[in-house]
Simulated assay, not measured.
Amino acid sequence: MDKETDDMIQEFVAEGGDFRDWRPSWNISPTDQIPIFLESKKKDAPSVRRVELARWSLVPSWSKELKTKVPTFNARAETAAEKPMFKASVASRRAIVPAIGYYEWQTDPATKKKTPYFIHAPEGELLGFAGLYAWWADPALDRDDPARWHLTATILTSDAVQTLEHIHDRNPVPLPRELWDHWVDPTVVGDQALVDEAVRAALPVAADLQFDRVGPVSGDGPELIQPLEHDDADQGGTEHRG
């Protein structure tokens, strides 16, 4: 774990749990484990903030199995509050997904060739994407079996900002740090208005993101985010993603 991530965990987790077994990865796929920041509250008890590992693909509590018929690693911000898959999580189970950046693939309309880009903050700062989480209980296991419970999560996406739309028509919702506390507060009842507020607040952060063309995204390691030599299509990128 790098010092910046450790410092952010210390800042966010004021009380309660502390997650120290997480290790960085530069190639995370849906259903892999990702760290999330969340805040939970039990009746008549104070809220507790903690960092947990979650399965990156949300599975609602009512699902009969630990998979869904449609992809749920992303949730469209425009409809998340009304979709049965995400509605309960929008209401009270919201999270921050920390990352140093993300990959997106630009598709050439003529050749269908996909070119990977690493999209990141200007100085490599840690980003906090607006996320949702849900607990799924395996009905095949006893209620007191700790393996019964699975924490799952998704990342909200919105229409891509102008500076990124040539790469892809959607981008994750990167929340400004001053909105994190409000977003994860379980006493704030979430609805579409809250999601819309998050998307609006994320626009300046998303517009400030920079992008680098990178090589094939296979294996794992910091070399995956090293930029290739820029061409004319990379205007606006930097010489520097996670």
Rank of each mutant, 00 (worst) to 15 (best):
M1L: 09
M1S: 11
T5Y: 13
D6W: 13
I9M: 07
E11Q: 10
V13H: 07
V13M: 10
A14E: 12
G17N: 10
R20A: 09
D21K: 13
W22I: 06
R23L: 15
S25Q: 11
S25L: 12
N27P: 12
N27E: 13
I28P: 01
I28R: 06
D32N: 15
Q33D: 14
I36S: 02
F37N: 00
S40F: 10
K41A: 14
K42N: 11
A45Y: 11
S47H: 03
E52H: 09
L53Y: 09
L58Q: 02
V59Y: 05
S61R: 14
W62S: 04
E65K: 14
K67L: 11
T68H: 08
K69G: 15
P71G: 08
T72L: 05
T72M: 07
F73K: 02
A77F: 01
E78D: 14
A81Q: 06
K83D: 07
M85S: 02
M85H: 00
M85G: 00
A88Q: 10
A88E: 11
S89V: 04
I96W: 02
T107K: 14
D108F: 08
P109L: 08
T111K: 07
T115R: 11
P116F: 06
F118E: 03
I119S: 07
L126Y: 00
G131H: 00
A137N: 12
P139G: 09
P146A: 15
R148F: 05
W149N: 14
H150S: 13
I155L: 05
L156S: 05
T157D: 00
S158A: 15
A160C: 03
V161E: 02
T163Q: 09
T163Y: 04
H168Y: 11
H168I: 02
R170P: 03
R170G: 05
R170Y: 09
P174G: 01
P174V: 03
L175T: 02
P176E: 02
R177V: 04
H182K: 14
D185R: 02
G190E: 01
D191Y: 03
D191I: 06
A193D: 14
E197H: 08
V205Y: 02
A207R: 15
A207V: 09
D208S: 13
F211M: 06
R213M: 02
V214W: 03
G215I: 00
G215M: 00
P216Q: 04
L224G: 05
G237N: 09
R241E: 11
R241S: 13
